[in-house]
Simulated assay, not measured.
Amino acid sequence: MNRRHYFIALLPNAEIQERVTRLKQYCCDRYQSQAALRSPPHVTLYPPFWWPDESVEELERSLETFSCQAAPVELILDGFAAFAPRVIYIHVAPTPALKTLQAQLVKAVAKPLNLPPTQRHPFTPHMTIAFRDLTKENFHHAWAEFRDQSFAARCWVSHLTLLVHNGQRWQSYREFLLRSPADPVP
Score class of each variant (00 low, 15 high):
Met1Pro: 12
Asn2Pro: 12
Arg3Cys: 03
Arg3Asp: 03
Tyr6Thr: 01
Tyr6His: 12
Phe7Gln: 01
Phe7Trp: 01
Leu11Trp: 00
Asn13Leu: 00
Ala14Thr: 04
Glu15Cys: 00
Glu15Asp: 06
Gln17Cys: 15
Glu18Thr: 13
Glu18Lys: 13
Thr21Ile: 05
Leu23Ala: 05
Lys24Pro: 05
Gln25Trp: 03
Gln25Phe: 03
Asp29His: 10
Arg30Phe: 03
Arg30Asp: 05
Tyr31Asp: 12
Tyr31Thr: 09
Ala35Gln: 14
Ala36Leu: 05
Ala36Met: 05
Leu37Arg: 11
Leu37Val: 13
Ser39His: 13
His42Pro: 02
Val43Pro: 02
Tyr46Cys: 10
Trp50Ser: 07
Trp51Gln: 07
Pro52Arg: 13
Glu57Gly: 03
Glu57His: 11
Glu58Tyr: 02
Glu60Asn: 05
Arg61Met: 02
Ser62Trp: 01
Leu63Phe: 03
Glu64Val: 02
Thr65Gly: 07
Thr65Leu: 12
Phe66Arg: 07
Ser67Ala: 15
Ser67Asn: 12
Ala71Ser: 15
Val73Tyr: 03
Glu74Ile: 00
Ile76Phe: 03
Ala82His: 01
Phe83Leu: 15
Pro85Lys: 05
Arg86Thr: 13
Arg86Trp: 01
Val87Trp: 01
Tyr89Ile: 06
Tyr89Ser: 13
His91Asp: 10
Val92Ala: 09
Ala93His: 09
Pro94Val: 10
Pro94Ser: 08
Thr95Lys: 08
Pro96Leu: 12
Lys99Phe: 02
Lys99Met: 15
Lys99Thr: 14
Lys99Glu: 15
Thr100Arg: 15
Thr100Met: 09
Ala103Ser: 14
Ala103Asn: 10
Lys107Pro: 00
Ala108Phe: 03
Ala110Arg: 01
Pro112Met: 09
Pro116Asn: 10
Thr118Met: 09
Pro122Asp: 10
Pro122Asn: 01
Thr124Lys: 14
Pro125Ala: 05
His126Asp: 07
Ile129Cys: 04
Phe131Glu: 12
Asp133His: 00
Asp133Ile: 02
Thr135His: 13
Glu137Ile: 08
Asn138His: 15
His141Ile: 08
His141Tyr: 06
Ala144His: 10
Glu145Val: 06
Gln149Glu: 06
Phe151Asp: 09
Ala152Tyr: 15
Ala152Asn: 12
Cys155Leu: 01
Cys155Val: 05
Leu160Arg: 05
Thr161Pro: 01
Val164His: 08
Asn166Leu: 06
Arg169Leu: 12
Trp170Gln: 08
Gln171Ser: 02
Gln171Pro: 00
Gln171His: 03
Tyr173Gln: 13
Tyr173Ile: 12
Tyr173Val: 04
Phe176Gly: 10
Leu177Cys: 08
Arg179Pro: 06
Pro181Leu: 15
Ala182Asn: 14
Pro186Arg: 05
